[in-house]
Design a binder for these strands. Structure first.
Length: 530
RNA sequence: GGGCGGGUGGCGAAGAGGCUAACGCUGUGGUCUGCAAAAUCACCAUUCACCGGUUCGAAUCCGGUCCCGCCCUCCA
């Protein structure tokens, strides 16, 4: 299995420190607002890396931090007249709402800076003792010149750094490139006691300290966005390696950026899309699909049409899943396979193999998905010309579909949604009332009464008054049951060749986001936006 | 200015020396179907920014040119 290592600029064979174990650390967000789509990319990418490593039999320890002490948090808290740590805590909760929706598995540990001040002070003290850091008036700086390997990750020389004009100029530092390990407290800032007085950690030290604390002096994989390569990850290396004397990270992985109209999505340009807003418009699995349909190191240009395309493409895979479930049904009959069934399974295993090979090559999700689509077509065409009444055919589909489903779940691109949304309940009830009124106009009192009785049976009261009808319920009826009833009415209409009524039902549902598809054996429904 | 990465069909996106340039979306035609949808089958790049070179053979390697993005400052 190969991983592109930013440190060497090449794909390298993965050799973990301990066999069958991977320790990975991923830089998490600074929690001072809701995350945007750009922030979501590394979440999904590294979650997928983690899932695949597990799929390949590795035991993965996954750490993702929260930066909850930071200039931006302090600034925001001051603007909102609240406590910085409370603000950070609040946005950590908000973060989990979004991350959970996207199906991001929780890290084994989510350490926060504010809970590791003692460890950070100990590390800074050690760095000072070894001559890698110095104090200036309550501030501690890292002496970049003392670390010979400085610049090895970002590919720039120390001299280049020193001559760089854009580095923050601070007369008190020995060199312009030196960076803060500890910042002296300013009035009204969160601060902690230290040997150098009141203060707080600099940005970079937290990751060196927390990564080594939980994963050891050398870790297997460290991930993050490409913009963290310099200075953040460069500085993490300088700190950790100077302190421990050991190589800090074996494999550095960095995801590419999301752009909008070919410009980087960023706060300063104002072209960012808050993930919460996108989640309101598109299902989480569509967003997840979109984010890994392109290789993780490539740039990704965003606009609404891309999500729409992702929705349709993923819909194809979901349709196959639906079709296989219909085809197999629940009977666990196992039978000898036919020649065609054997061929199906053989090809399925081939595609599974190819899927794994693609993922083994630096997590090529784009290529791996290509094989998923091929598997999808394979299954669909098998089902199209086989008879589902044949146990052998069902057995073959069942076995192949299990593999299909497993690969989908490695990528995390199927997230089952909760169908019992009140919005749909009300919409279906309204449709039933409309249908009932239509029946009454047509003097089909048998139907109109049947509808009312059925609704009463579901504990929904129907009230007729001069302005029309309305419904009331205390306990929400289930979407499934309502739909089942509506579809039964439609089947009855079709049987009586009342196509106008049947089509009225279908059109009405479609306008409200539920699509009906007639098949030889009945009807199936699905959400239009899924 | 320095450091990375990239330009592949109408669109998105794989491929990194040699099988018909994956896969998805869109489009066209056929099958199925009360109609619709879904599914299925077929078709849709002699060509991979441009110009040279290496090679029996180049999207793929080398040199040059033109564009584009990112980093060098907080940023995923």
């Amino acid at each position: 299995m190969k991983i592109y290592n930013t440190l060497s600029g090449k794909k390298e064979e993965l050799q973990t420190l301990k066999p069958h174990r991977v320790n990975m650390y991923v830089c998490g967000p600074t929690t001072y607002n809701l995350i945007h789509l750009g922030n979501a990319r590394p979440l999904v990418v590294f979650d997928t890396v983690r899932r695949y490593l597990k799929h390949r039999g590795y035991e993965v320890t996954y750490i993702q931090n929260f930066t909850d002490v930071d200039d931006k948090i302090i600034k925001r808290a001051w603007e909102e007249q609240t406590d910085p740590l409370e603000l950070a805590s609040h946005y950590i909760e908000e973060y989990f709402i979004d991350a959970d929706a996207l199906g991001i598995d929780r890290a084994d540990i989510h350490p926060r800076v504010s809970q590791h001040i003692e460890d950070i002070i100990a590390t800074i003290t050690g760095l000072m003792e070894k001559g890698y850091a110095y104090e200036v008036d309550g501030n501690i700086y890292y002496r970049v010149r003392a670390f010979a390997d400085y610049g090895k990750l970002s590919g720039r020389s120390v001299e280049e750094m020193f001559s760089g004009a854009r580095v923050e100029v601070d007369e008190r530092k020995e060199e312009p490139a030196d960076f803060a390990l500890w910042k002296k407290a300013k009035p009204n800032e969160p601060s902690w006691h230290s040997p150098w007085g009141e203060g707080r950690p600099g940005w970079h030290i937290e990751c060196s300290v927390m990564a080594t604390k939980y994963l050891g002096e050398t870790i297997d994989i460290h991930g993050g966005g490409a913009d963290l390569i310099f200075p953040h990850h460069e500085n993490e290396i300088a700190q950790a390696e100077a302190y421990t004397g050991q190589p800090f990270v074996k494999y550095w992985m960095h995801n590419g950026f999301i752009t909008v109209n070919s410009e980087k999505m960023s706060k300063s340009l104002g072209n960012f899309f808050v993930l919460r807003d996108i989640l309101a418009k598109y299902p989480a699995d569509v967003i997840r699909y979109y984010l890994i349909a392109t290789h993780y190191r490539s740039p990704l240009d965003f606009d609404d049409s891309k999500l729409e395309e992702a929705r349709k493409a993923l819909g194809r895979l979901k349709t196959t899943l639906t079709l296989t479930r219909e085809f197999v049904d629940d009977e666990p009959e196992i039978t000898e396979l036919t020649v065609a069934g054997k061929a199906l399974l053989e090809k399925t295993h081939e595609l599974e193999q190819k899927f794994n090979e693609a993922m083994d090559d630096d997590f090529n999700t784009a290529m791996a998905m290509g094989f998923l689509f091929e598997l999808s077509r394979l299954l669909n065409s098998f089902m199209a010309d086989q008879d589902r009444r044949e146990p052998a055919a069902r057995t073959a589909v069942k076995n192949a579909a299990e593999i299909f489903m497993e690969l989908l779940s490695v990528l995390g691109i199927i997230i089952e949604r909760d169908t019992n949304d009140e919005q749909y309940v009300n919409l279906l009830l309204k449709l039933l009332l409309d249908l009932r009124n239509l029946a009454r106009q047509e003097k089909d009192y048998a139907l109109s009464d049947a509808v009312r009785d059925r609704l009463n049976g579901l504990n929904v009261k129907v009230e007729d008054n001069p302005e029309g009808s309305r419904f009331r319920y205390e306990v929400s009826p289930a979407v499934d049951e309502l739909l089942e009833y509506i579809l039964a009415i439609r089947q009855e209409s079709k049987a009586q060749r009342q196509y106008a009524r049947a089509d009225w039902i279908r059109d009405n549902l479609q306008e409200n986001g539920i699509i009906l598809e007639d098949t030889r054996e009945g009807v199936r429904w699905k959400f239009a936006d899924a």
